[in-house]
Structure formats: C-alpha cells, structure tokens
Design a protein around this nucleic acid. Structure first.
Lengths: 230, 230
DNA sequence: AATCGTCAACTAACATGTTAGTACAAAGGT
DNA sequence: ACCTTTGTACTAACATGTTAGTTGACGATT
C-alpha cells in the first residue's frame, strides 16, 4: 500500500504487452509517473506479475513515442518536457486540426453538424454547472469528432501521438479562472464556420483556439522546473 | 545466392534491434519485400545471424508504423496497400507540408532561401540531363529542407512516418513521361512564393503540387491488384 | 585534498527455452 | 462428393538465462 505509485491491474484487453503498455502510458500521461521518474523493469515485472518480455516491448513502444528516454545499457526514465518539443507538438497539432476542420467544413453532412452542435451545447451546460471534469471530456470529444468526420480512421490516433507532450503538460495547467467559458465560445465560433461551410473562417477560428495553449504552458518552465530538461 | 530476397548486412550503426529494423524497413520500402510477403522470424534470424529478440523488437516497431501486419499467434506479413490508407496518408502529408511551407514563407532567412533556390536550380539541371534518379533525390531534399527550416527538429521524421505508404506506392509510379519537368515547375512556384513571403500563395502552390500524387496512384489498384487489400 | 583508476552492482540488450494459439490438411462420418 | 473433425506442424507470445556496457563509489596515488 505504500508503493510510490500504482499501476492499473489487468482487467484490460489485448495481449500482455499491450496491457502493460496501456498501464504504463496511462501512468505517465496522468502524471502518476512524473517526468524524470526512473523506470525499473524488474519492479514493473513484479508489480504486474509478468516477465520482462512484454515489459520490454511496452517500453520500446513508449520510447518510440518519446514518452520515455532509454539510456542504453543503463536506465530508462520518463522523459522530461522541453519547450522546443512542446512548441513542435503544438505546430503539428495545429497543422492537423486546421486541415481537418477545413475538410469537415466543406464536406460535413447535416448529421455530423448535428452531432457537433449537440456536443458544443453540452459543453456550455457543463461549464455553467461548473462540471469542469465533464467539460474536459466534452472538449476532447469535440476534437475527436472533428478528426473522425474527416472520413479518415487514423488521423485521430496520429493526432494523439503527436500531441502526447501537450496532453501531459496540459495536466499541470488545468485550473485557470474563466478559461473554460472562453474555450466554449471558441468552439462555438468553429462550429458556426462549419455550419456555414466557410473553410477560411473555420481555419482562422481553429488557429486562434489552438494558439492559446502554448502561452499558458510557458510559465511551467519556471513553476515546475524539475519537469523540464536540463 | 538464390535467396528469394536479400537484406543488407550489418555495416549499419546502432544497436542490433535498430540495425535489423533499418534493414527490414529498407527492404519493405524499396519493394524488395513487396506487400503480402510472409515474414518468418526464424529465416530473418538465420540470414542476419542474430537471435529472435532484436528481430521481434524490429517487427514490433514496423507493426506500430503499419508497415507489417501481425496476425496474433500465427504470422506476420508485409502490409498491403489500401486506397483509404493512401488517401489518409496524403491528407496528413498535405496538412504537414502546407503548415510548414506557410511558416517557412513567413520566417525564412536569406540563407534558407538561398539553399532552396540552389536545390531547385539543381533539380532543373538534373531533369535537363535526364538524371531522374538524381532528380528524385533532389526532390526529396527539397521537401526535407522545408521541414527543417520550420525550426522544429522532429517534423521531418513525423512526415516520414505518416508518408510511409505513399513512399512505398510511389516506387511503382516513378516512370511517367514529362512528369519531372512539371514537378520542377511546381517547386519553382513554391519557391517563388517563399521568396516573396506570400504564405497564401505558398499554401496554394504546395496544395496543387501534392494533390497530383494520389491520382497517379489510383490506377495501381487495377494494374497491381495483388499489392492491395482484399 | 584532489584526481585518477579500479571495482562492484545494476541495467538494458541479447540469446534461448517454453507455452499456447492458429491454420491447414488429411481422415472420418454423412 | 461434401462437410465436419481432429491432429499436426508452424507461429507469435511469453518466460528466463546470459552477456556486456554504464554508473557511481571507494580507495590508491600524486
């Protein structure tokens, strides 16, 4: 019970490696394993009751995604933030979401528009009820819906994989007065542009919306210096 | 000597897994291992003189990139093309390259402009000399230069990883009369927009340039049906 | 006291043994 | 002749043993 940090047990699906991967990934993204944490294969094996093979595979995958840094023959630790990486992730995210919203604006069906409208209405209600956890989920769903409405199955996952560092950093930035209602308004602007099938307006609204994240992360380099690269 | 297909030997750098990975990746991208090829761990181990561990890691990486499909407990084979995936890859590539060229157009230094100009001039010379292999390389370098001039180290690799299927399909599409000189002209249009720091013109020129690829791939579904998914 | 070399403990990386799931083909029943 | 079933051969997935490289600490040398 006094373990420094817990990992979800295996009521997950898929192969052993995948379950270990999901478990570790979740621990890292949720900041239960904060940046810099040393990862010991042996400890993981013991905790999860599996051998080193699936753990190695999981770590290899996390390494290729940049969530862990592996120092050859020596150690592997949860990767630290760097402003360069965060800016890069933000650039990539913008590139993808802007391309997506342009395409969706031009090609959306009335059903898709209805789904987005429903989601945004829900966002407003959740914020008015001050259910910020619920809003966070709805926010994520809004962007996921957009990705899926491009008609390409994989873009959502690609976005996730390039946004990993942003997702993690956002956990530290969550509480900010008055931000959620602003975010809702920005979503409404995006929605309006999609409704009117105005690709240019959609692009601008999305760009404005996404550009606000990095400035909110910047102060972290001071306030959470221990999470950043030397 | 009568092996059905060869793999580069290890005068590569890095760990064993990385070398195996590079070797297999190269074989797949160069179509030495065409889509549908069965991959046997045992055979690879024998051919390269390594054990199953590094081969497994390499295959796991290739699997996460979508270059091989692994059928659990059964087999793993080189993944086949699907038009959906190719269209999706093209969408992602456009998203990234357009975002990049906009940024570069706005922020380019005179040195960067000079490097791009030099590259495009070289392209024209190579095409006039009918050195199409050389042109292919210069073409790739042009796009890589653009990626690097965004100031973000990783975007070039992200582009590579999302463009894998395109890269592979392009191998089958190479010989086409009159295409290279057209491509040069398109590059010159992009270059001009960058020179004049016109982001909108740069976006349009890039979009036009990239949109020409998918239509050239489409016929492959008929002419090389064996490489496509059921 | 500071620096360099040595050594011990630990780790990832690699090799190999084991398990269990899949697919295909031959045999048996209809 | 056709469908079902069973058995075998093959594979990925998992467990474990082994190797080799890195790190940090301690002690010897200057």
């Amino acid at each position: 019970m006094t373990e420094p940090s817990l990992i979800k047990i295996q009521n997950l699906s898929g192969s052993m490696s995948q379950r270990v991967y999901q478990s570790l990934r979740d621990a890292i993204l949720s900041m239960q394993y904060p940046p810099g944490t040393l990862i010991r294969k042996g400890a993981i094996c013991e905790q999860l009751g599996v051998s080193r093979s699936p753990v190695s595979e999981a770590l290899a995958k996390l390494s290729s995604e940049g969530l862990v840094d592996v120092i050859p023959q020596s150690a592997t630790k949860v990767s630290c933030f760097s402003m360069d990486e965060i800016r890069e992730a933000s650039f990539l995210r913008q590139a993808l979401e802007i391309a997506a919203v342009e395409k969706v604006a031009l090609e959306r069906t009335t059903e898709q528009l209805a789904a987005l409208t429903r989601n945004v209405r829900m966002q407003r209600l959740l914020v008015e009820d001050e259910d910020f956890a619920g809003f966070y989920e709805a926010d994520e769903e809004f962007h996921t819906l957009l990705m899926n409405f491009t008609g390409f199955d994989g873009v959502s996952h690609v976005l996730d994989s390039v946004s990993l560092h942003l997702t993690r950093a956002r956990m530290l930035v969550l509480p900010e007065q008055g931000r959620p209602i602003e975010a809702v308004k920005e979503h409404e602007a995006i929605l309006l542009a999609i409704k009117e099938q105005d690709a240019t307006a959609a692009r601008k609204a999305m760009k404005y919306h996404l550009e606000l994240l990095v400035p909110r992360i910047l102060p972290l380099e001071e306030t959470h210096a221990e999470y950043f690269k030397v």
